[in-house]
Structures are given as C-alpha cells and as structure tokens.
Amino acid sequence: MSEFALEVKNLVKKYPVHGGDEKVAVDNISFSVKKGEFFGFLGANGAGKTSTINCITGIGKISGGEIKVFGYDAVKDYREARKKIGISPQEFNIDIFAKPKEILYFVGGFFGLPKKERQARIDHVFHEFGLEKYADTPFRALSGGYKRRVMLARAIVHDPELIILDEPTSGVDVELRYELWRILTELNKSGKTIFLTTHYLEEAERLCERIGIIFNGKIVALENKAELIKDGKTVEDHYLHYAGLQKNGV
C-alpha cells in the first residue's frame, strides 16, 4: 500500500478559450500528501487550486500527468479512488429544493453505502454538524452557515479517507469558523487526510502541517509549516512574498 493519500505527478490542466487557443490553468505540477496529513493548498483566485481539485475528484478532465489516490489511479481505477474522496466545493452545487436528509441519503447511496449503514452515518454526521433540527428544511431555506454545514456533511457522509475542502469557511461567521476548525481538527486526529484550500492564511497556519502555494498554475512553495515559519515570519508573510506583495500595501 502507498504511504501517500494523494500523489500528483506532472499534472496539466488546460481549458479551451475563444479563438481556438488553450489556457493553461495547471502547469505541470507535482506534489504528494501523506496519509493522515493536514495539507494546505494556497493561492490567489485563478491560481489553479480549484482546477487541481477538479482533476483529483473527477469533476474535471486531466489534460496531462497522473493522479493517484491511496495508490489508485484517479482515471483507470476511478471507482476505488473516488470512494476514498469526499469533496466540499467552494460553490453550493446542491439540489436547492432537496432537504438535507435527502441530500445525504442519496449521496451516501451514490458512494455505495448500504441503507442501514447509510442511515447510521447520516445520524452521526447530522449530530456532528448540529443539523438534526434542519433535516427536513429545504436547502434553499437554510442560512448561509447551515448551507455550508450541509456541504461539509455531504462531503463526509460516506466516511472518506481523503477530505478535500475548497474554501470551506468562506462567507461564514466567526463562531461557525471556529466550530468548523474544531470538527476538521477532530477528523484529522481520527486519521483522515485533509486537503484544504483557503484564502484565510491564519486558518492555514493554525490547521495545516504542510503547505503548498500555487501561482499561475505552478507550485512555488511546498514545505512543512514548521520549516516555512522557522525564520520568524508568518505563512502570510511568505505568501505575500511569493505573490510579489508586501504587508500593508503593494
């Protein structure tokens, strides 16, 4: 068995643009995430974070390179690879008319959970995210914070080994952010590998063991957090350095 939860080798992702040209969103990147690691993937808007995630999860097509999830090829052994992944995307890509209990019931089914086991997992996840009261409320009628909770609950309903979170705390209040940090830390302590993208650099500094920074589709830094900040600078200082910016102004 591989010691890595995720191995990305020479990944390229291109998008067609008007005029027959191609835009390179991810430019030949390689990195790996160890089992049980809390990995932060940072970058500006349009840097290539979501494109990378889409390639890992099967939402996007890979233009070049190779991705392995717990040793399974993300394209050839897609069933095994995807069973191990739970994804919470940045956007609310949910059937807005469905109720949380229906959303989790069906998604658990898509991932092959038998009904009995599924119901036990739904009960557990509802409890974990404090969603019991809102199980029968249509998604569109929930507040932003509860919508985000449903997104995260959906990501872990099938008990995946690798949890991919694309800006999970964007737009949530401070209380919920702390609550989500607690849940993510507990999940990581229980052995789950977490792949997190965020714009909140203090969030990455607080939660992640290792950090990758991507700019213009290329990885410009990939280090242990402890190694990165041993010079006394914060993750934010390093991020701004790679972005060519300075604190308190350009």
Binding site: I59, R79, K83, I85, P89, D95, V107, F110, F111
Partner: peptide, 9 residues
C-alpha cells in the same frame, strides 16, 4: 449539481 455524480464512483 452534476458534479455530485461526477465525483461519485
């Protein structure tokens, strides 16, 4: 929401 299916096995 099609992404829900694309990410499933």
């Amino acid at each position: 929401n099609i992404e829900e299916l694309l990410a499933a096995p």
